[in-house]
Design a binder for these strands. Structure first.
Length: 1083
RNA sequence: GGGCGAUUAGCUCAGCGGCUAGAGCGCCUCGCUUACACCGAGGAUGUCGUGGGUUCAAAUCCCUCAUCGCCCACCA
């Protein structure tokens, strides 16, 4: 290690040097057997898209601050870095080609080749993600990096699926899903983005028919007579006319006045010429004429008649279920009109009528064609412009299509999942800083009325260890979580992708018919053979077989382990080969196989994969060794201490982790959830790739340094929902940056230079040089360092912690006291996840207190032979503690400074004031503990600050040359005078003045200008500028007059005197007295 | 439609019942004083979105409205 402390702060060099040492010493690794209280954070496994945005860098910063601090507190802290597979495959267009025209997987697609290719991408992206973490200085346990598709995670996913399946919490359903016709995959509700779209409400007329047996005929003309409403048409309103091809009913509200006369009647669906019933359902919104709510937008547009298209609208689907209507899908998976996906296959309803001209058209083209057809036939009543929001795919950004499809569902509505998630919500207030605090509990779900004892213990008050609950910071987010869980719907967990955890379920047709359709094997026969085979292979513990009641009776075979899955796969392969007349393997495996081959040609693995959130939901389990029984990491670190994430993820991820952890372990996955602000661009827009307003953290690290980025992000981390970051494009590099990061860069630079000065002073002192000399000269730096470290062993004038404590000056006491207060502030801020307050406390202390005041005050002390040694020790100790405080947020620069400080002052601390237990590395140093405060010293020093500022202001007002010293006398009380005299040299340096006289009886010298400051009267000589004087006095008088008026007003208020706290009243009176006195002195 | 947040200096944000409402950036004046010009000293700039209310006291608590944004739900 070099003893050199370069003059210029070069973050890149510091980062490289420090990172190499950390790496070499393997400082980031925790074992469950290590001592210390467990501390762990749940790390969202990011995908590559997320990793390239600042929000993720913010998240990583926060987590690293928490982890590093915990480590310094001696806790057994672990951070498991992870990467997620989502976003890898979807970044490509490959998946577009995965499905064939039938909406099934292409059989000619080489899955293995695809996976190999994806694997290569994954490796690349993983390097990007982990590289960013490393560049940021995140103290991850690198040798525990987890990937959501690796073997331990796959094992956990299988086990979880199996257990949920066994518990009846996973089922297969034919449901309308959010279908993305572009990528041809189903999307979760959360993956659908709403976008405002300009469209039309089309009013379509459907002719009414009556039915007599199999005959339909138009109503007789005479029914249109007076007093009786006998329409020839009903008018339906729709924004999506093309779906009318799939209509299977027209619905009217039963309370609609027209309902009765239409009861039992039909309409002849135009174009298709299908007769469909008019039904009554109170879901239908009535038009305003019919008593609909005028405030309801739907009612304003409603005709009172609703076309029912169960295959293409979720609500219509439900109406269809209620009325047992047929479901006619008129689209292909790509969204084009097709009669090949259900339309023509329904007996009696299959005809396409005159719709042939629409087949093959896109949704959009079909819409125009249908509208044109209605117009041409006089059946288009109106088309009214209408702006509404339509769901769009978050991936392809095309409108989603409700689409009928086989999907797997997780029954999260079950008491054991959503119920458990709700019960996990803490009712305690997280902290005084966190607003309302852990909302929930009392009104959770369908919980019994208040007064009933909860079956689950509520968290105890502060001081006691929290019960097994989750607490949100800020507390308001508990409500988001609660509302979501209360209104939750079953979770569609299957995805039509190649890349992901395969659904571990095989399907076997359970009846077998011969060529004539005669049943030759029934369910019992097939089931018997199957269970015999399972026993023979010895996988009965790892397989569940359930029969499904569907159009085609079948068994679902769920496998628990990779081995069991392989066995079933082998069975499928063998029987397939046998049936394909390649009988090479015929019958080799089992006594039952010769029989099974006759029935098992239908054994197929489900082609779908699991939603990525399924594996993510298991993250606190799967990264800690689950499902291994008693895995040491799991028992040590789960529940984890805290999860930090963005609020958009509360529903997708947080809630599901709670459910699964509760279900599988019976405990919460984390105790605290910290939701950080979302970073928007300067115009309040979300950062996104498409807008080009994103900022790559690596670019910032490059331009400003990792410490600067981290500090800035932490200081932006307020309790608000969103923070804006103006984005600027650097024309030279074409990369985005933001001037906001300058605060971090400037601060890091300040820290560097402050430390450089302190270290230089100490080195010079111990080298026997006079501190008045130039201690750190360009080019001479290395020599100073070497000499200093050589001098250390024989440095008799560097006093002990105890000796130093006895000779502290007012300035020393003040800075040590301020340091101790800062330690308190930092602790409080971090305990409440107030990273902005933590950053600000450190910033203000180091820059304002330490550099601006103490370091300046210390310069004369370093020249004073009786004080220089103790001052050096105070400087070293305050710098030491500052580095400890700042290390979590600025790890690199503090670590580098730490080494340099160790070189010149390996032993630090001031007895009673601050302890500095030695450590070779800052990352392993003990988190500072508060020592004694010195309130009296603080008060006097603050007065001195006021005096210095007053002198400086006068100098500036009178335009005194910056280098010219002025003569000053100060009239003050005894205590203050004592303090002033003890810091005479420091004050003279700070204010560029010469102090002539200080004391109670000091009189104003001739030609002196007087000013009040810090409760003293300060006389500054030699200021000759009558104009400036007049201006200054007038301004001050004005201020004082206003103040006096305000104070008097307050004191004349009887209510104030009667009701305000006495100390405030006294304070007001004192202020009035003081202001009046000063006003009088100004004449 | 439901929920949440924001509205304070030119910009980005703190403050959330009682100090003369603050910080950083930007701006003006002065200064390369033996750590730092990514700096130092001083300065200017605010009817705290609107209108009501509660209180001795409101930027801060309550209500109204307005504007902006986010999340959720839904869309005939």
């Amino acid at each position: 290690m070099s003893t050199e402390m370069p003059k210029a702060y070069d973050p890149t060099a510091v980062q490289a040097e420090v990172a190499a040492v950390w790496e070499n010493e393997k400082l980031f690794h925790a074992e469950p057997t290590d001592p210390g209280e467990p501390y762990s954070v749940v790390i969202p496994p990011p995908n590559v898209t997320a990793a390239l945005h600042l929000g993720h860098a913010l998240n990583n910063t926060i987590q690293d601050v928490l982890i590093r601090k915990a480590r310094m507190e001696g806790k057994n802290a672990v951070w498991l870095p992870g990467t997620d597979h989502a976003g890898i495959a979807t970044q490509t267009v490959v998946e577009k080609r995965v499905l064939n025209e039938e909406g099934r997987r292409r059989t000619d697609f080489r899955r293995d080749e695809f996976v190999k290719k994806i694997q290569a991408w994954k490796d690349e992206y993983e390097q990007v993600i982990l590289g960013q973490l490393k560049a940021m200085g995140c103290s991850c346990d690198w040798d525990r990096t987890a990937f959501t598709m690796d073997a331990p995670r796959a094992k956990a996913v299988r086990e979880a699926f199996f257990q949920l399946f066994k518990a009846g919490l996973i089922y297969r359903g034919k449901r309308l899903v959010n279908w993305d016709p572009a990528t041809q995959t189903a999307l979760a509700d959360d993956e659908v983005e709403m976008e405002e779209v300009d469209g039309f409400f089309y009013y379509l007329k459907y002719p009414v028919y009556e039915r007599d047996g199999d005959n339909f005929f138009p109503p007789q003309e005479e029914h249109k007579g007076m007093g009786t409403w006998a329409p020839l048409y009903v008018t339906v309103a729709t924004t999506r006319p093309e779906t009318m091809l799939g209509d299977t009913a027209v619905a009217v509200n039963p309370t609609d006045s027209r309902a009765a006369s239409l009861r039992g009647k039909y309409v002849k669906l135009p174009i298709v010429n299908r007769y469909i019933p008019i039904i009554e359902d109170d879901y239908v919104v009535k038009s305003i004429d019919e008593g609909g709510d005028p405030a309801d937008v739907k009612a304003q547009f409603a005709s009172g008649f609703l076309k029912v298209t169960p295959a293409h609208d979720p609500n219509d689907y439900e109406i269809g279920q209620r009325h047992s209507l047929p479901v006619i899908n008129v689209m292909a998976p790509d969204g084009s009109i097709s009669n090949q996906h259900g339309w023509s296959q329904l007996d009696g309803l299959g005809g396409v009528g005159e719709a042939g001209f629409l087949l093959g058209l896109s949704r959009e083209a079909a819409r125009e064609a249908v509208v044109e057809w209605f117009r041409r036939h006089g059946l288009l009543e109106a088309a009214v412009p209408y702006r509404h929001s339509v769901g769009h795919s978050y991936r392809s950004h095309v409108p989603i299509e409700p689409y009928l499809s086989d999907q797997w569902y997780c029954r999260v509505t079950d008491e054991r999942l959503a119920g458990a998630a709700l019960r996990a919500l803490s009712t305690s207030s997280p902290s005084p800083l966190a607003g309302e605090g852990g909302v929930g509990g009392s009104s959770v779900g369908k919980s019994p009325e208040a007064g009933n004892p909860s079956p689950h213990p509520l968290p105890q008050g502060e001081g006691e260890k929290k019960a097994d609950t989750v607490t949100f910071y800020p507390g308001r987010y508990a409500k988001t979580y609660q509302t979501w869980n209360e209104n939750i719907r079953d979770w569609c967990i299957s995805r039509q992708l190649w890349w992901g955890h395969r659904i571990p379920v095989w399907t076997l047709q359970s009846d077998v018919r011969d060529a004539t359709g005669e049943l030759i094997w029934n369910e019992a026969d097939v089931g018997g053979l199957l269970s015999t085979w399972i026993k023979e292979v010895g996988i009965e513990k790892d397989v569940i077989v359930i029969s499904t009641s569907g159009a085609v009776p079948a068994f679902n075979i769920c496998t628990r382990t990779a081995q069991a899955d392989a066995a079933v796969g082998e069975l499928a392969r063998v029987t397939y080969m046998a049936n394909s007349e390649d009988d090479e393997h015929y019958g080799r495996k089992s006594s039952v196989v010769p029989h099974l081959v006759q029935v098992i040609s239908s054994l197929e693995q489900d082609p779908d994969v699991l939603d990525t959130w399924f594996s993510s939901a298991l993250w606190p389990l799967s990264t800690l060794g689950w499902p291994a029984a008693n895995a040491a990491p799991l028992t040590k670190w789960n529940p984890t201490t805290v999860l930090t994430t963005a609020r958009e993820i509360i529903t997708l991820w947080v809630s599901r982790m709670v459910m699964f952890n509760q279900f599988f372990l019976g405990q919460v996955p984390f105790r605290d959830v910290f939701i950080h602000a979302m970073i928007q661009d300067g115009d309040g827009r979300k950062m996104s790739k498409s807008l080009g307003n994103g900022v790559d953290p690596l670019d910032i690290i490059h331009s400003h340094g990792a410490d600067a980025m981290r500090f800035t992000l932490a200081s932006m981390c307020t309790q608000t929902q969103d923070v804006r970051m103006p984005v600027e494009r650097d024309p030279a590099t074409g990369r985005n940056t933001s001037p906001k990061f300058d605060i971090g860069r400037n601060f890091a630079n300040k820290v560097w230079n402050g430390a450089r000065f302190v270290i230089g002073q100490i080195a010079a002192l111990q080298n026997g040089e006079s501190a008045s000399g130039r201690v750190v000269a360009d080019g001479g730096v290395a020599d100073v360092g070497v000499a200093a470290s050589a001098a250390m062993s024989s440095a008799p004038d560097f006093p002990s912690a105890n000796q130093t404590a006895k000779v502290l000056t007012l300035a020393d006491l003040w800075i040590l006291s301020r340091l101790n207060r800062t330690i308190d502030e930092a602790n409080d801020a971090l305990a409440g996840y107030r990273f902005d307050q933590y950053a600000k406390a450190c910033y203000d202390f180091f820059w304002r207190d330490f550099c601006d005041w103490y370091v300046e005050a210390a310069k004369p002390q370093m020249k004073d032979p009786t004080r220089q040694a103790s001052t050096a020790r105070v400087l070293a100790s305050v710098l030491d503690a500052s580095m400890r405080l700042l290390h979590p947020v600025m790890p690199f620069v503090t670590e580098k400074i730490w080494w340099q400080l160790n070189e010149v002052a390996p032993e630090r601390g001031v007895m009673g004031r601050i302890n500095c237990p030695p450590s070779q590395r800052c990352i392993k140093a003990q988190w500072p503990r508060r020592g004694e405060l010195a309130e009296a010293a603080e008060q006097i020093f603050e007065k001195i600050q006021e005096i210095v500022v007053a002198i400086r202001t006068l100098r500036s007002d009178y335009k005194i040359d910056a280098r010219k010293s002025v003569a000053v006398s100060i009239k003050s009380g005894e205590e203050a005078a004592h303090g002033i005299l003890s810091l005479k040299a420091s004050i003279e340096l700070l204010a560029v003045c010469t102090i002539r006289d200080v004391g109670e009886h000091v009189a104003s010298p001739d030609n002196a200008t007087a000013v009040q400051a810090g409760g003293c009267e300060v006389y500054v000589e030699g200021l000759v500028d009558p104009a400036a004087e007049a201006q200054r006095v007038a301004k001050r008088k004005d201020e004082l007059t206003k103040a006096v008026a305000a104070l008097k007003g307050r004191l004349n208020n009887a209510g104030y005197l009667a009701k305000a706290p006495p100390h405030l009243v006294k304070q007001t009176q004192d202020q009035l007295t003081e202001a009046e006195a000063e006003l009088a002195s100004l004449g």
